[in-house]
Amino acid sequence: MDFAIETSGLSKSFGHVCAVESVSLRVRHGEIYGFLGLNGAGKTTTIRALLGMIRPSAGSVKVLGQVIGPNERGPWRQVGYLVESPAAYPELSVRENLEIARCLQGISSRNATTHVIERMGLTPYADRKAGTLSTGNLQRLGLARALLHEPTLLILDEPANGLDPAGVVEIRELLASLAHEKGVTVFMSSHILTEVNRLATRIGIIHKGRLIEELDAEKLEEMRLQRLEIKTRNLEAAQSTLTQAGFTVKISDTTLILNEERAINAPEEVASILVNAGIPPFRLAVEQEDLEEHFLRLTGERK
C-alpha cells in the first residue's frame, strides 16, 4: 500500500541524547493523523526528519512516495508545513512574507497570495508588518504559508498554538474540510488532546522518543477504560457494603469507583445493593476515560 508518510525504524540521536528511537509510522492518504506526545517526547524531531531538516541516525523516511534524505530530495511542492512556533520577517508585511513564500514555492500567480490571505482571515492585517502581529495572527500567517500552494500533504506542528477559541474551531473546520473535500493528508502534532480527539482519524502516541501506540480514532473508543462512578451520602458504609458483596471499590474524593466489568455491565445490580442497604446512590454513572486520561495512563504520567 502506498502511504503519504512512512517511516521505518526512524531514530535520531544528538550526541548521547536519543530524541527519537525506532519510530515506524504510516499515514494513509487523506487521513488526519494526530501525533501526540509530551514536551520533549520527540514530536518535533520526527517532523523535522519528515521534512528533511535533520538526517536520521538510523532508519528511513518516505514522504509521498519519495525517500527523504541527503541532497534535499523531497516532494516539497506538494507539502505544506509549520514547524514549532511560526516565524516571519518582522520588517516585512504579511503580504510580503507570503509573496516571498509564493516565489520560493514557484507559484507565478499573485492571486494565490490574496486568496490565502482571505482564506486565513488575514485581510485586515495584510499590509501590517509581521513584527507587530499578535501570536494568534502570526500563527495564521504560518498556516497561510503552509496552505499557499494548495499542498496535498500538510505537516503541522501544534497548528492551534496561540489561537483563540474561535480560531481553534475555525482551523479545525478548515483542516477537516481540506481532508474530507480535497483529500488532503494532515499530519499534526498537538498537545491539545481534545482537538486531536475531535479531528484525527488516526492517532499516534510518542513517549520518550518511542511510538508507544498507533491506532484508529474509532478503535480508541473501544480501548478506553470504563468505570462505574457512584456518589452516596455515606461513602464508607457504601464501600463496606459493596466490598461485602464482592466488589473491589476505590474511593476518590467524594466518589466510589468500580472498575470491574461486572459492575460496569450491570450498574442496576450495584444500585439495588446500595438501596437495600439503606444507602441509595444519588449519582451512578458509567464513565469512559477521555483521550487525555488514556494518554496519561499510557505514558505513565498518571496511574
Binding site: E72, R77, A87
Partner: peptide, 18 residues
C-alpha cells in the same frame, strides 16, 4: 535570529539556490 531559516529548508527552491 528571526527563526525564519526553517521556512527555507523544505521548498521546491533548493537550499543551494537560496
Amino acid at each position: 535570529s528571526d527563526h525564519t531559516v526553517k521556512e527555507l529548508l523544505a521548498l521546491p527552491t533548493p537550499r543551494g539556490i537560496i
